[in-house]
Design a protein around this nucleic acid. Structure first.
Lengths: 341, 341
DNA sequence: CCCAAAACTTTGCGCGCGTAAAATTTTAGT
DNA sequence: ACTAAAATTTTACGCGCGCAAAGTTTTGGG
């Protein structure tokens, strides 16, 4: 009732019969005031619907409750899902996360970091563009603000790195593919946006050699983040040109694989494990759409949950002031066997 | 060089030899100061790397430069793409947009609107959850803050609504399908999250009747926003049970269609226009992944660009104080013929 | 019932900037 | 060179809250 427009904490404190500093204390930590006081404040809160002014709060606090979450490309459901997961954890911990996407653009990434500074965030969870990131700017940012890098590794930056063990990914899938059919060829972009690609390629080579097979890498043209289109168009060209020595194609990531599956379909090449199929296709990531491709894509699943949990927990440690040790935490992937390979 | 830590505008003004109020004026609108003055400020700006404190700025301004962008489900690339488009336009106009996703959750949508309030945004672009939105809360929000609703219509709310002409969508695709084969059955969820679904259904019925065909609607179970899975599992059940009277299935949206295509594949039913295909499938939206399904999905393309442009322009009008007229702007879709129908 | 500790209130300052009014300087036009 | 207009500087206040210090009340044991 009587939701008279309360202008500030002063007024609200008066109406609830508590002093302003105590009310202020309550908002910073409800547990820090006596139970009876808390009750009175909360009663008044329902009655008058007052909320402290964000800007006035943060102006004077040394450390805000703001967090930044930055991903390289939000139109990729993989990052959207990861971001969602991280966001929820931050909120649960009482922070106010803000989500940003670099949209695959270096300038935009720089701008985001820049405007993030002015938010005086307590910390930032950054999945950098990777290869196309402006190293100097990212490094400077990490030096000023507690930052946990995730997904995409950048050497010697931030408080810590949390990601996937891409070597293990490649090993796992290569072993599976070799065990169940021809050793795979590897399909990737010439200049991959994501540095994980490098580790996956190397992991592939190592695994192949260890098993006594000769690795074959097919690099296709294509810039940017439209992986599906690159997989379809350029992967399709490679396929039509007979560039793949194996009937089994391991793609650097699921989005590339999704596009490649489309190319196979266009060329009427049947994909799968059945005897009447000509080719097998596998990917990396367990992209949200991978189970809906035709055939469903066999892939290595990133541990979304573990990565987001670890990234957030590590950031909290950083915020609490632990020593910066450039720790790296990698999570293993799990083989997701579907019908494509 | 000598990037001494400048604490505030006072210091920066002193260093650049300009008075603080003039510097303040410059930051609010660089064009509002004399050219010579602007030059001196900008020189100092490069030299000392000062940026005004966001919180102090917004504390005193009646109108901030903040904008809110809210979408119901960011892990859907359709919304991610739309959000990206809108975001860029806002930045270009000198605003600071912040992106939020309700993740399909009413409570979260309410929380977002609530915390958006405390940002004192100049305006908000809101794609509500729709059916599951808390009408009262959204309405109250719109009354307080200039808001343009987009994608999902809510009656009598906000400054204006911008979306797609879903009736026209259905008409267009039904006419095409009838012209080129059997009149379609319509596949949708029993309780669709998105209110566009209702208009699409009605548009379908109307178009069918006008062409002298009997409409058939197949409603499948399923809650939430995991449309692909619902399309695959429940759509697949309906397919196996022979519930579709037609060999042509029009899906309420592309994500449902993507899942349904997976179900067709599972049941070894060939989809497409070729003589050897048993079924045709079409969708609505031109989802970013629709061109990579197998076969590529025939659909009606939403005009992402027109919608985002119109929504942003309309919001700017609202911010400038035009009268609230509850205008509705709908954009037509374009038929995207691919191989699935 | 007394006392120390804990919680609270009072007082008062400061944060960094917006903004208004009045005084001053610069600009542009003649 | 003179003058009105425009731009800038000076001056001064306020925004809403954090925060620290000092005084007051409440709490919990003994």
């Amino acid at each position: 009732m009587a939701k008279n427009t309360i202008r500030n904490m002063e007024e609200f404190a008066a109406l609830s019969g508590i002093s302003r500093p105590t009310v202020s204390k309550y908002f910073n930590d409800p547990e820090s005031v006596r139970t009876s006081t808390r009750k009175r404040i909360e009663e008044a809160l329902e009655k008058y619907e007052y909320r402290p002014n964000m800007f006035a709060i943060n102006q004077n606090r040394k450390l805000t409750k703001n967090l930044g979450i930055v991903v390289p490309y939000l139109a990729d459901p993989f990052f959207a899902e990861l971001a969602r997961n991280i966001e929820q954890r931050c909120i649960a911990a009482g922070f106010r996360p803000t989500l940003y996407s670099s949209h695959g653009d270096q300038e935009l990434e720089n701008d985001i970091l820049d405007s993030l500074r002015s938010l005086k965030p307590a910390g930032v969870l950054l999945a950098p563009l990777g290869r196309t990131s402006d190293r100097a700017i990212v490094e400077k940012f990490c030096a000023d603000i507690p930052t946990v890098i995730f997904d995409s590794f950048l050497p010697d930056m931030g408080f810590a790195f949390v990601g996937s063990d891409n070597w293990q990914f490649a090993r796992l899938i290569v072993e599976y593919l070799c065990r169940t059919g021809e050793p795979p060829s590897f399909l990737e972009m010439k200049t991959p946006s994501n540095p994980n690609a490098n580790r996956r390629r190397k992991g592939y080579i190592e695994a192949m050699e260890r098993l006594g097979h000769e690795p074959q890498i097919v690099k296709v043209d294509g810039e940017g983040w439209e992986f599906e289109e690159i997989g379809r168009r350029e992967g399709g060209k490679a396929l039509a040109a007979g560039l793949f020595k194996s009937n089994t194609i391991l793609c650097s990531n699921d989005r590339l694989a999704i596009g490649f599956l489309a190319a196979c379909f266009e060329q009427k090449i049947r994909v799968g494990r059945d005897p009447d199929c000509q080719i097998r296709v596998a990917g990396h990531d367990d992209h949200p759409f991978s189970r809906f491709t035709c055939p469903p894509l066999t892939t290595i699943a990133q541990d979304y949950d573990a990565i987001s949990r670890c990234a957030v927990e590590t950031l909290f440690k950083a915020i609490e002031g632990s020593e910066n040790k450039h720790e790296t935490t990698l999570f293993e992937g799990k083989l997701v066997m579907r019908d494509s390979a």
